[in-house]
Write a protein that binds this DNA or RNA. Sequence first.
DNA 1: AGGGGTTTTTGATAAATGTCAAAAACGGAG
DNA 2: CTCCGTTTTTGACATTTATCAAAAACCCCT
Lengths: 187, 187
Amino acid sequence: MQQLLNHIQQYSPLTSDTQNALPDCFKKIALGKNELLLREGQICRHLYFLETGALRGFYNLDGKEITHWFGFEKDFVTSFHSFITGEPAVENIQLLEGSILWAISKETLTELLNKHHEIERLVRIAYEKYYIRLEERFVNAQFKTAKELYENLLQQTPYIIERVPLGFIASYLGISQETLSRIRSKF
Amino acid sequence: MQQLLNHIQQYSPLTSDTQNALPDCFKKIALGKNELLLREGQICRHLYFLETGALRGFYNLDGKEITHWFGFEKDFVTSFHSFITGEPAVENIQLLEGSILWAISKETLTELLNKHHEIERLVRIAYEKYYIRLEERFVNAQFKTAKELYENLLQQTPYIIERVPLGFIASYLGISQETLSRIRSKF
DNA sequence: AGGGGTTTTTGATAAATGTCAAAAACGGAG
DNA sequence: CTCCGTTTTTGACATTTATCAAAAACCCCT
């Protein structure tokens, strides 16, 4: 919990009053490798803070699993579209490693947002960061070759390559597993 | 200005007190076709609400212009990365049609956010919508064929096809102009 | 309506990547 | 340590899309 408090204040500081309100809002969850945190079709009613571990979001396309994001220590994860709109999720969230998470329900979060301007600000700022991240990923994905995408990954987020099976990385980059394998074999 | 007030309250309602504070914060701008609202290298210090007209964001890649987003009536536009981080923009923003915009500076917006929890909430909710939009575009771009991308565009945002030159649309979709032309010729 | 610049289309070819199938390598369980 | 299932690699080939170049169409301006 302390890690969560520390982490979020990198976005925006909180008064001790607000900080004190937080611990009761989150519920601790421990899950093992390969377990599903969310199954497609379910409504995602929680936002999760990943204290330790790793997971992925994936969906099915023509019978294939497409991994489109990963989460690691200190990431907030959820099926964003479902969490925000209340519609059923199109994706699954699966643990890649045994993990410890802190869950907050949408209702509780909404209360916090209403009660504390500070939290509202913090979330707004967090969104800005996440938006910029996604924008960068998007621009890369669209105009780089498979080789460049892999090199980028190697430079910017080497821990993904170290901790995630190749097949998941391939669809994350938007290329086939075979192509990725061939790229990698040429250093 | 009334259009702006109406529009933003689709995100979240505002008390009349907050509404009254807004008009003074925005400055009206009129620009003609092909003019630049922002040039790459400049720091983007404003957020714009596009009342009427159309524009595009584009950057240079290997000597080619890549249009990566469009703005139309009722869109908020800015060079997001630059506006948020204060770093020089990598992109240009150019008018596709004569347009009327309302500009708010980052400082003024920050004041508003600090003074009015309601505005903070509204912006947070607006970000959610913009994030979801980008996510959808991203997933599409990565896993659809050129033909599917064009069909999607035709269905979801036909006004883009009607109002924007083909070359800009091609790079927006991440395909070459020739490929797009060939796709289109087969209905 | 004519003319010049811009945008779009068409054609030929090349490059990058995907697909399918099978072999090899890896890794955990007993 | 060995075996079995999973993951990765390799090979042959097909497909999609990009690229370059030139022709055609379009559009605005006077």
